[in-house]
Design a protein around this nucleic acid. Structure first.
Length: 812
RNA sequence: GGGCUAGUGGCGGAACCGGUAUACGCGCAACACUUAAAAUGUUGUCCCGAUUCGGGAUGUGGGUUCGAGUCCCACCUAGCCCACCA
């Protein structure tokens, strides 16, 4: 009798143990089967433990991996830990416990939790970014970047987090605040390691066309890279030997430039301070601007500010006109050349600024008459109304007030005017180089040595890994240097080249480093001579399906594409792009639709659900709760529904076999729908179809062979229960290595169907029609129906529309 | 300000290419079983009117169509991403 009742605890323990022992989910490096590489983003093992939000993507790709195995693929579905990072370090600062120990504790807990959910990861390939045998290769990749001049040092106005005492990449500053701690940030000059991701901008952009990423992901990456084509022009500064370089997308409007604007950080301002008549006013303005976040500076709703550089004039390179120079914080130093030519007649921001400060507005492009209405997707007309549009025309048109260029189209004028001005056509990108150093402890040490004689010298590759030494205190020094700077015996080394005295770099890498290549290491996780063997890489790459959070679209996803492209260029990996297909999951919110957070006390621990209802219930619930790519609120009540479904499923399978075929159509429809839905990540409708199947079985009973088919379809979703049921119905081996069932077409074709009969588009009656009935016969039958007669009597039938298998519509 | 996504019962949601709106689940109600409760099972459950019939309803207002949740236009609301990109 015990076989008849569903005891999730016993069943789940039993099979998890067996799967681990049998290595049911190990990927084989020597299999003749076709490979399939499924990947989920490896987690940062925080002290809070696994989140219900982690479970959703892990289970989703687990379902795909399990289906692929049953379809005969050699599946690699690996897992690991992205364990460098600030929370662990901050915990160490507070408690003095070594980050290594904290990481060990956290990963052990995570591993236990992930294993309790029955995700079919290949645990033999587990990796950890903080393991020296792993970060040896992260450091190795850095050295290759350094050798190819893609890693360089630069004094950068970087974002400085006041509370973390750490430099942040632009990408890590969210609304002017530190992405990690939420603290205030300011701009500060600092020597930083930079990675030249911009060198790959064009490839990162172009390759997107041939990748199977969700469309919103592509759009977001394209916008982030932000390619724009224009020209670089130089304005001489009158009575000096200096000039201002500007970047413009509209060189055709050069005759309309009535002033030039520098970003507050622009070095020319300092260089010219002796000629400046109002230096005090200007430096006050600059100081104010440095306090503002980029967010504030670029907020369109805030009024523009600026100060004229009195005593200086710029000379327009085409008409020799002398125009004023301003400094204003709506111009960003990091973008383009940090200076613009302002054309208020044809640029909205310049127009607003000119209006406020009474600067001249010159029209050099004639708007077509009449001015067309805004077209969606056309160049911005923005918020300007029609009257203003005449004064500030941002669209296309022919040139006027432009000397020899009058009358030609502005498109044509771009190149010609650039040439005349002695400028250069240029493409710029919004994408900025990646600030790659952190003045912190818990990261990969940057393997560079500074020698007074030899300069920057890479640590010899045979000395890698350069291990992170133990420190007594984990806080950065007061001037913001890494805590490593305090360990003299580590810092002071011999120069590898001249053997003279030298010092180590004390900055460490950001935690994006380890995650930029981890998918390669899974392929050959224990290799000590290469980051992974070339043959194995060739066998497994690229990743066939990568799922992760939408929030990583512009950071991790771009960084790792960049690294992979670089490794491809130096011949270390076989594919230019790492991921063939990328999808994204929606967030899981707390009950009530708000974010789960520790401070709100509304975090759901998956352990509790697993204990009370079982892993299979948790899995089925998370797949059933709603569309996979959408954010959705947790509901404790609804978990019960998933559990009841599994109990009913258990019930119909252990029930006595019954010889009948009433259920066949439903069963085969289920096989087909679940198969298709998994591919489209429509897991919610796949589960609902299985529910329909169980409800049908409950009414009709089923044969042993057909129960097996159902158990196989259920297996990716509820692997433990399915394995137990497989044993009960006498299946051979493990259900997870059995062959994925195929729907029998014979049972999918129905003999007859219900046809809706409409009159004037309203359904009045349904008619049961045999599948192959001719159109005329159907029409005749429909018109003869008493209910339809009632609606058509005494009226003229104008038209009868017949859609096979669907409806018939009578128009009167 | 821009972009993207969405708005359907009391709730989560379903609806392929424009073709019977509300599948599936939760909740709720009644009934059965029970001394009772839980569990389970059965039935019902968009709204209005009067039953087997009729009318109305997919954020709002228009439009295209024999037919619109789905397509087009305008607007409202929410979420996410981006943000003076020269």
């Amino acid at each position: 009798m015990s076989q008849k009742s569903y005891d999730h605890t016993k069943i789940e323990k039993k099979w998890q143990k067996k799967w681990l022992e049998d290595k049911t989910y190990s990927a084989s490096d020597s299999s003749k089967k076709e490979k399939y590489y499924a990947l989920v983003e490896f987690p940062y093992p925080s002290g809070d433990g696994l989140h219900t939000g982690h479970v959703r993507p892990y289970v989703a790709l687990d379902i795909i991996s399990r289906k692929r195995r049953m379809e005969g693929f050699n599946v690699l579905y690996p897992f690991g830990w992205d364990a460098f990072g600030l929370p662990t370090e901050n915990f160490a600062i507070k408690t003095g416990v070594h980050p290594k120990e904290v990481t060990k504790k956290n990963t052990d807990n995570y591993r236990r939790q992930v294993q309790s959910i029955g995700v079919s990861f290949d645990w033999d390939r587990e990796i950890n970014t903080t393991d020296p045998s792993y970060y040896k290769w992260t450091q190795w990749i850095f050295l290759q970047l350094f050798k190819k001049d893609l890693a360089y040092k630069a004094k950068m106005p970087i974002n400085w987090c006041l509370s973390c005492k750490i430099g942040l990449a632009n990408e890590e500053v969210i609304e002017g605040r530190c992405e990690r701690c939420g603290g205030e940030t300011e701009k500060r000059d600092k020597e930083q390691w930079m990675l030249k991701i911009t060198a790959h901008a064009e490839r990162l952009l172009n390759n997107l066309d041939n990748l199977d990423y969700l469309e919103p992901i592509k759009i977001q990456q394209r916008n982030w890279i932000g390619k724009s084509e224009g020209a670089e022009l130089s304005f001489k500064i009158k009575d000096t030997d200096k000039e201002i370089k500007v970047f413009t997308t509209r060189p055709d409007t050069l005759y309309g430039a009535t002033y030039v604007v520098l970003a507050p950080e622009h070095p020319l301002i300092g260089e010219l301070h002796t000629t400046l008549e109002n230096f005090d006013e200007v430096s006050t303005y600059i100081k104010e601007a440095s306090k503002k976040t980029e967010q504030d500076r670029t907020d369109e709703t805030k009024e523009k500010t600026g100060v004229e550089l009195k005593g200086l004039k710029a000379v327009n390179p085409v008409n020799r006109e002398e125009i004023p120079i301003w400094v204003a914080d709506y111009v960003l130093y990091e973008y383009g050349t940090g200076a613009i030519m302002a054309v208020p007649g044809h640029d909205e921001r310049d127009y607003e600024f000119a209006k406020k400060f009474n600067l001249p507005i010159v029209s050099v492009i004639e708007p077509p008459q009449p001015i067309p209405d805004p077209v969606p997707g056309a160049p911005a007309f923005g918020h300007l109304d029609n009257k203003i549009k005449v004064e500030c025309w941002t669209g296309e048109g022919n040139l006027t007030n432009s000397g020899e260029f009058n009358g030609i189209s502005n498109g044509e004028a771009k190149e010609k005017i650039t040439k005349k001005a002695g400028g250069e056509l240029k493409t710029t990108y919004k994408l900025r180089d990646w600030v790659f150093s952190r003045q912190r402890y818990w990261g990969e040490p940057i393997p560079i040595i500074y020698c007074n004689k030899c300069g920057m010298v890479p640590v010899p590759e045979n000395e890698l890994p350069l291990e992170l030494p133990d420190v007594e205190k984990y806080e950065p020094t007061d001037d913001g240097e890494s805590p490593l700077a305090n360990i003299e015996e580590w810092v002071n080394v011999e120069c590898p080249e001249c053997k003279g005295p030298a010092k180590r770099e004390t900055d460490v890498m950001p935690n994006w480093a380890g995650s930029s290549w981890y998918f390669l290491r899974y392929i050959d996780p224990k290799n000590d001579t290469e980051l992974a063997s070339k043959e194995l890489l060739k066998q497994w790459m690229p990743v066939d399906w990568y799922n992760g959070g939408m929030e990583h679209t512009t950071l991790h996803l771009l960084y790792s594409r960049f690294w992979n492209q670089f490794l491809y260029d130096i011949g270390a990996v076989p594919t230019e792009e790492p991921y063939k297909k990328r999808t994204a999951h929606g967030l899981i919110l707390a009950e009530g639709g708000v974010k789960m957070s520790k401070s709100k006390g509304n975090v759901v621990n998956p352990d509790d659900v697993v204990t009370q209802y079982g892993a299979d219930t948790l899995r089925v619930y998370e797949m059933f709760m709603g569309p996979f790519d959408q954010a959705i609120a947790w509901s404790t009540q609804d978990i019960l529904g998933a559990r009841k479904f599994l109990e009913r499923a258990w019930g119909v399978v252990v029930a006595e076999d019954k010889e009948t075929d009433e259920y066949k159509a439903t069963l085969h429809k289920t096989i087909k729908k679940v198969s298709d839905d998994i591919e489209n990540m429509d897991f919610n409708t796949a589960v609902s179809q299985m529910m329909i199947c169980v409800n049908t079985f409950k009414k009709t009973g089923a044969t042993k062979e057909d129960k097996k088919l159902f158990v196989q379809v259920l297996a990716p979703f509820a692997p433990h229960m399915a394995e137990e049921l497989w044993e009960i119905v006498g299946g051979e081996g493990s259900v997870h290595t059995s062959a994925w069932p195929v729907a029998d077409e014979k049972h999918l074709q129905e003999e007859s169907y219900a046809l809706a009969v409409q009159v004037n588009g309203k359904v009045r009656e349904t008619l049961t029609v045999k599948t192959d009935t001719k159109e005329e016969d159907v029409k005749e039958e429909a018109l003869a129906l008493p209910v339809i007669k009632k609606w058509t009597d005494g009226k003229e039938i104008k038209k009868v529309i017949y859609v096979e298998g669907k409806i018939i519509n009578i128009v009167v």
